[in-house]
Design a protein around this nucleic acid. Sequence first.
DNA 1: AGCACGCCGACT
DNA 2: GTCGGCGTGCTC
Length: 803
Amino acid sequence: MTQIAEVIVDVPTMQTNRPFDYAIPASLTKQISPGMRVVVPFGKRQLQGFVVAITDQSSFEGTLKEIVAVVDLRPVLNHELLQLSQWLAQSTFAFWISCLQTMLPSVMKASYEKTVRLEPTADPKLATELFQGKQEIPFSEATNLTSAHKLLQLQKEQQVEIVYHVNNRAHKKMLKGLLPTKSVAECEALKANLTKSAKKQALLLAYLTSVAGQTEAIAYQQVLAAVAVSRETLRTAAKKGWFKEVAIEQYRDPYAGHTVEHTRPRVLTAEQAAAVTQISQAVKESQNEVYLVEGVTGSGKTEIYLQVIQDALKLGKTALMLVPEIALTPQMVNRVKGRFGERVAMLHSGLSTGERYDEWRRIERQEAQVVVGARSAVFAPLSHLGVIIMDEEHETSYKQDDMPRYNARDVALWRAKYHNCPVILGSATPSLESRARAQKGVYHLIRLKHRVNDRPMPEVTVVDMKNELKKTTEGNFSELMLTQIRQRLIRHEQSVLMLNRRGFSSFVMCRDCGFVLKCPNCDISLTLHMDTHSMKCHYCGHEEAIPKVCANCHSHKIRYYGTGTQKVEAELKELLPTARILRMDIDTTRRKGAHEKILNQFGQHDADILLGTQMIAKGLDFPDVTLVGVLNADTALGLPDFRASERTFQLLTQVSGRAGRADKKGEVVVQTYNPEHYAIQLARHHDYEGFYKREMTLRHQGNYPPYYFTILLTASHEEENLAAKKIFQLMNQLKPVLSQKAIILGPTPRAIARVNRRYYYQMVIKYKNEPNLNAELTKIMQDNQETKKGIQISIDREPLSFI
DNA sequence: AGCACGCCGACT
DNA sequence: GTCGGCGTGCTC
């Protein structure tokens, strides 16, 4: 009976979002298995696809086509990851093929090429005129020289053939090497037969004697370094059969040249030790539990992670540790590499595609048992997972904002369930979703109340910028901030200044009283739309005129708010001409490695002040930094997002953690127009629990997460009215399916309504329990593909940004 | 996504 | 008459 493979083909559309059946030719039956990539005919073309199952019958009525080739010797996706891909596709409303591809290094995605090949029977004139003596030319080149029609005609006349190529872009770095085949005795015999003048060959044979019996291949490089013979001697020796010449696969080592200092486990505090004991027990007993580790910066979360990993390794299990991209600093990498050495694989955006592929293969071959990486590392092909760790669990970068729109936290929880292993979610400022689950007892809450060595928390001073403006002319620096920076300059200590760029000039605020215009229906800040010269709420669509006077204090100093890093740098240079300033923002860190370079410079005290955007809030730990200044704490508060307070609290807490070390006390100065705002006041007192309680009350009142689930639906079209029409139609389609308890916000135009010549309209569904919602949303995705007409629809489950 | 098929207007 | 524009439907 012929075997049949169910294949997901590389065509990301709704119509092809299902397995297609292919016959497995007899020659391939032995080597093919689910999780392998294959090349299959699809229409006229050839495509790459993934075998997701093997069966012996098909419901397809026609005759099945045969699989052309198998790409992999071994499956690139195991049973777990195949199942995960299916779940991911369903839960994020993405194409299955997109999910399969995001789980693998990008080089494993096929590239396609279309060429025209000359048939032997062709007119000789064609060979010179069109093909210029070549046998095969790219299709695009052919159409440049002649018309597409003419080519088709030539194809019908069997003068040319149109060929579709599927290229594998992943290339392994190969080295030539030798594999010893002769025994010691054989080597001695060969040596005895040599003429006296054959000194080099004698040397080589002596070497071969020393490695006789070794089953591992030795790279030529290594041989040449050990023995004074030339490449040519090796070549002739190989011909004579003294050894076997083999190709050795070489991993690109992204850390070559870096020396990593070996580190030992540190002595734990009582709190840390209790945490490690509890979690390691769960690792040992394969319990699928989630531990939320809530601890301020400096409470030693990383050491807990490392020791739990160590315990997992001792049990022969593996560990996955996820870290936000910006926190993957050399300091962080060295700490893990220093502890586990060769057993660690790193996956982050700093690697070249080739290096990433090599790290992935080291994991896949079980040569690495610990994986540290950013979002996509959650798909690392580790088997026997003992623990999954997600540091800075609240970070929004764990959510991917294009297809598939997955949150690495959900994937981590899924994998932990599959492997029956614990998950550690760590943060100084947990997301309300996670903290609330800990409250309900779904997660175990582990609170670290003390810092290692009982270091005091830095003192935070809040400066009310409304008063400052009355004192001086408009500027970004308060008197206190300047005094503090000057003090650091005198003491040869360093300062870190953060300019919050979130919500840059998108909202209007009164400079006298800090009043921000809010929507009367939603209690969400209104967004300034310069295109329509109005203030809009893009939750409910409310619109009003841009105010000329403050509705609260009738001041005329109401304006949109924001400033750039360059401007601040210039201002700072004028105020403090002697200070050496380093600027770190998107502009100065665009080049690869620039980020690291700036931090190194600052670490070597090449500058007194580091001025930057949010990116400086994480991962940097410099002993001489005793002042952290936040220039504008409240810009994010003005954002039309119910998570605005949460973000502000998290950011302030995080930057505060950058100030001061064991020996030098740190200070934090926060400038704001909203000094009484609870997010700022509670951050000032390092009171996460207080913030959690306060914010939960507000979320409860506003019917927001974690009390409600959310879905963001977006429709876009080049013509505004068509996009609007579609979103209203979708709302009408969904309404009858939803219960009375579901809340629909909108539809409204998106804050930046037009992007890339397309208009965007969106609506938000808030719900608690809607059994029919998933099916209807899936239907919407399918229907839309059939009646497209230029309309694009996207569905985002639990979006982290509503802008 | 491509590619074919089909139908319509604009030309050698 | 035919070339080439794009709307529609299919790919195991």
